[in-house]
Design a binder for these strands. Sequence first.
DNA 1: TATTTGTATTATAATATATAATACAAATAA
DNA 2: TTATTTGTATTATATATTATAATACAAATA
Lengths: 131, 131
Amino acid sequence: MIITLDFKSETPIYMQLRNAVVVAIGKGDLKDGEKLPTIRQLAEELGINAMTVNKAYAILKNEEFITIDRRHGATVTRPEGGRGEYREKLEQELTLVISEASLKGVGRKEFLDTCADIFAELAAGQRPIAE
Amino acid sequence: MIITLDFKSETPIYMQLRNAVVVAIGKGDLKDGEKLPTIRQLAEELGINAMTVNKAYAILKNEEFITIDRRHGATVTRPEGGRGEYREKLEQELTLVISEASLKGVGRKEFLDTCADIFAELAAGQRPIAE
DNA sequence: TATTTGTATTATAATATATAATACAAATAA
DNA sequence: TTATTTGTATTATATATTATAATACAAATA
């Protein structure tokens, strides 16, 4: 798993790691059922403390993006519940992002096209690549 | 200006305030050229420290969402530059949001429709209301 | 039995956040 | 002029967050 951390960022490391895993699943770099590295392995690989990785894993587990079994480590899963709460959070988040975008000169069409492009990019990663 | 803060939130107060102003401009509750309350006024109104308001204003000023003139206070403005850097930031942000949405079961069509709805809602606030 | 796992605890340090009390020059109003 | 208000800056203090470090433990595995 290729994860790059920005130690100068104001985003905490554990949150960067959590975000990177979510995007990796979204992009298909991590498939459903696939195992993630153990906490200690990933900590060593990234050069950070194990408890920082643990915090990221705990969040992902709570969000149902992964399940954690002792000895088997963490496994990618499809979240089941909590769609209603998520929709509310999503709309608030999008209202902020779209307000910013509008003011920065990114109009409706450009924004929607960008979203569509990203969806296409993510969908491409979910399919096996034709060879 | 009606701003509600959540003191239990993990989002810092100064960032909540910054976000609220951006959304208020996006929604048209704050028009271009309109004056914001003075730092001390807003601090008292919200029951928070003046330096916390100052920090939010400083960020908004740096992002060109407002200009600050001594004595005239803060004024809403249209940001001019920095579109290229912003686009890059936007795409990273959207990749994360869309990854999350996909995994949470919010598909392409639902997502794009939601965005379109929010754009429509914001655009409505930019027009004078027919009476 | 020995090792590895996730998890938990405790301690420490650095940074971020928020408040408080001032102070200052510039602009405004009296 | 004088007095007030403005944004801005500084200093101090307290709390919370973040990250690391060193352990420890039960459960699972080899």
